[in-house]
């Protein structure tokens, strides 16, 4: 969702300008940088999101630069009644979860049996290999009936863990599909 620019940015800009009358130019430069960021925010596209750490559900606003298409600022959403714009240390550092963090994974990595290194692969290769492994394991170990001869239709040798750190719609797709595969060892962070 796109939001209009918020009033408090105007206010902080005005405060910055009047303080610039002092003789120490360090703050002037800092305020200038802040003003320039404010201007970027004015012309940016803004999207609301929800924090990805604890379960308070604090609102955040991501500002996306029109020219680069990248997020350049994330801050608390003052409209959200839960956090009223405030954030904790982790929430305030949310920008470091974006692609600006050099540690983000950007390629499919594969490690072959007994290998000592990762290799880069493409998605098609990975999905077709994973599907092969799932089918071979499931077909080999599938339990149709239990010791009492009752129909149980389950796959005991494949397990699924996670996640409480993805969206509801993703959770639901996982929940549905692991049942279709017959999995019973299914769990996630709600337990641990």
């Amino acid at each position: 969702m796109e939001l209009t620019r918020r009033g408090f940015l105007k206010l902080s800009g005005a405060v910055g300008a009047s303080s610039a009358l002092g003789l120490n130019f360090k703050p002037v430069n800092a305020y200038a940088a802040e003003l320039s960021k404010s201007n970027r925010i004015k012309s940016s596209k803004q999207y609301t999101t929800i924090c990805a750490y604890c379960s308070c559900g604090c609102g955040l606003i991501c500002s996306v630069d029109n020219l680069t298409g990248k997020i350049f600022n994330i801050e608390g959403d003052p409209e959200n009644p839960i956090n009223e714009g405030a954030l904790c240390a982790k929430g305030a550092g949310f920008f470091d979860l974006t692609e600006a963090n050099k540690h983000r994974l950007t390629k499919v990595r594969y490690r072959a049996p007994y290998s000592d290194k990762w290799e880069e692969k493409d998605w098609d290769w990975a999905f077709s290999r994973i599907a092969r492994l799932v089918k071979d394991t499931r077909d080999k170990d599938f339990v149709t009936t239990n010791a009492q001869g009752r129909l149980v239709n389950r796959t005991e040798s494949i397990a699924h863990l996670g996640s409480s750190n993805i969206d509801n719609e993703e959770c639901w797709l996982i929940s549905q599909s692991v049942r279709a595969m017959g999995l019973v060892y299914i769990d996630h962070q709600a337990r641990v």
């Binding site: 799932v134 040798s157 494949i158 699924h160 863990l161 996670g162 409480s164 993805i166 060892y185 996630h188």
Partner: peptide
């Protein structure tokens, strides 16, 4: 006894 594991976001 378990041969394959999916571990998403964990």
């Amino acid at each position: 006894a378990i041969k394959g594991l999916f571990a998403y976001g964990t």
